[in-house]
């Protein structure tokens, strides 16, 4: 995959400290010496191409709600069906297949514990599969974004 200089700058240098000013994209454009339209078009294009999930805040877990990481051991032939069912809950924001006996891992976030527990019970009841809930106890990593490496040549 090849990236333009503007794409690289936006992807790498603006994962944090996005301006909290009335015209943030214009401020970024001024910093980079391009016009605002170029910044907006490039960001929109990267969102459309699914290189960028969004431009916005990343909230700290458990500060504005509760969350848990849940894992299930799903028979391979049922994995698509179970994953699709779990995705129907708007409270599920990440859902991955992983190489392990526990092969389905998803993150659930909700306003309170009782709603979270309800959903976990519903998922177990509907799928007939036991579920392991692993809520966060401590966080050690400070999220400063992710340093990207450009190895295209």
């Amino acid at each position: 995959m090849r990236f333009s200089t503007l794409q690289k700058c936006l992807l790498n240098d603006y994962q944090r400290d996005f301006p909290l000013t009335p015209c943030p994209y214009e401020d970024i454009a001024d910093d980079l010496g391009v016009d605002e339209e170029a910044v907006l078009t490039t960001l929109k294009n990267m969102v459309d191409r699914r290189m960028v999930s969004r431009v916005g805040p990343v909230f700290a877990p458990n500060r504005v709600g509760v969350s848990t990481l849940a894992a299930m051991a799903v028979p391979d032939e049922r994995l698509d069906e179970v994953a699709a069912f779990i995705n129907t809950y708007p409270e599920v924001n990440h859902n991955y297949e992983r190489e392990h006996r526990f092969n389905l891992w998803f993150v659930l976030t909700s306003a309170n514990t009782s709603r979270l527990d309800d959903i976990l019970r519903q998922i177990e009841a509907t799928t007939g599969l036991p579920l392991m809930s692993l809520p966060l106890l401590d966080e050690y990593h400070i999220d400063l974004g992710f340093p990207l490496q450009w190895d295209e040549s």
Binding site: S53, R54, G56, V58, F59, P61, V64, G65, S67, A83, A84, I86, N87, P90, E91, V92, N93, H94, N95, Y96, E97, R98, E99, H100, F102, N103, W105, F106, V107, T109, S110, A111, N112, R115
Partner: peptide, 24 residues
């Protein structure tokens, strides 16, 4: 220790914290 590589991504997006609070 154990290493669990991801295979398929079924969903990835930002958390929706307030949806339930507002629905109530």
């Amino acid at each position: 220790r154990d290493v669990l590589f991801s295979r398929r991504c079924f969903k990835q997006r930002g958390a929706r914290y307030a949806a339930r609070a507002l629905a109530a």
